[in-house]
Simulated assay, not measured.
Amino acid sequence: MKNKQAIGIFDSGYGGLTVFKSIVQKLPQYNYIYLGDNARAPYGDHSFETIYQYTLECVEWLFAQGCPLVILACNTASAKALRSIQQNVLPFKYPNHRVLGVIRPTAEIVGDFTESKRIGVMGTRGTINSESYLMEINKFFPEINVAQQSCPMWVPLIENDEHLHEGADYFVNKYVDQLLAKDDEIDCIVLACTHYPLLIPKIVAALPAHISVLGQDDIVANSLALYLEKHTEIEAKISKEGYSQFFTSGDPQAFDASASIFFGKEIVSSHASYVKGADED
């Protein structure tokens, strides 16, 4: 896509492909570049400083590929790096570029899905410990009570293609039970990790029927569509050929073998050799 500009989609690994799939379905006309930092995934247990550095390196790599707009389709990166990049990097180094995350779009609409005003948030340790959802939801819906639960085994289960097997049931039930023990009046659960939609059938099966489960894929796609309508100066820069490229900092063959689980169809990726640490896998 030389001399063409695309929307960049970034994730620490595969999970962002669930968001990317919905974005392409909603906005098929644009060009896209997806980057998974698989060589350094998962991000969930890393420090704020490490995740910020990794995320910034990947964002700058996407900028260098011709992406004026990058979506952090990763809750951990959105929680630990987005604000610093928006406030401390873009105004001084990339004033004509934009970086968006997945937490704010979810926080803006979550109030529409709860009657009890009590919701649960399930995510990685990094996302939960950041308390980003608590802060963002409080901005829009201060009356909502939020209970959180980290689910450290869910991403490894999904990335090792074990999420559909019976062995995953134990860890789904374990974390759901721990969340509901914190607040038995929850009527909506936010899946604050883009991997988790692949576990929705098991999560729903583990929950009482009155509790709804809210994934982020369609939420982020709808939010992006509204953003591009509002920010015509960014929208006008994006090439409109309906073309997508996929890159990974890890091994492309390994990435391609698992990516179809998340994206819904076969893809062919290339190695992002200029991401720092990409050759350390």
Rank of each mutant, 00 (worst) to 15 (best):
D169N: 12
L82F: 04
Y94P: 04
E229D: 15
A64Y: 05
K230P: 02
Q53I: 02
L27K: 02
A41E: 12
Y274V: 01
D161V: 00
R83D: 01
A79N: 04
E241P: 01
Q53E: 01
P201G: 04
G8N: 09
E57H: 14
Y94E: 06
M122G: 06
A272M: 10
P197E: 03
V70R: 10
L90M: 01
G66E: 14
K230H: 13
R40Q: 13
L35F: 12
V121H: 00
P152T: 09
L224A: 06
H97K: 14
G250K: 04
F140K: 01
K139Q: 14
P201K: 07
H165D: 13
A73N: 02
H210W: 00
L27F: 05
E229Y: 11
F113I: 01
A192P: 10
K139I: 09
Y43C: 12
T106R: 00
I189S: 12
C67N: 04
G15R: 04
Q29S: 05
K276E: 07
D183G: 02
I211P: 03
F262Q: 03
E115Y: 02
G101Q: 04
S249P: 05
T76P: 14
T55C: 10
E233Q: 14
L72T: 00
N75V: 12
T76S: 15
G101N: 03
I267S: 02
K237Y: 05
Y170G: 04
I137A: 08
V146G: 00
G264N: 06
Q86W: 04
N129Q: 13
C74M: 15
D169A: 15
E266A: 07
V146K: 03
Y133C: 00
K4C: 09
A278H: 05
I144G: 05
Y175C: 08
Y133Q: 00
N129A: 12
I189M: 15
A272S: 05
K237G: 01
T232I: 14
G264R: 04
W154A: 04
V204H: 07
E131H: 05
G277R: 08
Y170S: 08
I186C: 02
D218F: 03
I189H: 11
S270W: 00
H97A: 09
Y170Q: 14
L180D: 15
V102W: 12
L191A: 06
Y227H: 10
A41F: 06
L90Y: 01
I137C: 03
S116E: 13
S212I: 01
K2L: 08
I71C: 03
Y196W: 11
N145V: 09
E57W: 01
S78R: 02
L180M: 15
Y32R: 05
N88F: 00
R104K: 11
G264E: 03
C67F: 12
V19M: 08
G16N: 11
N129K: 15
V268R: 13
V59Q: 04
K80R: 07
D11M: 10
F247A: 10
H163R: 07
C193P: 08
N88C: 03
I128L: 07
K174T: 11
E162D: 08
L198E: 00
G120D: 00
C188R: 11
I189A: 12
A107I: 05
S258M: 14
F262M: 02
Y43K: 14
G36V: 12
I85S: 05
Y274T: 06
I203D: 09
G13R: 11
E108F: 03
I234D: 04
Y170W: 15
V99N: 07
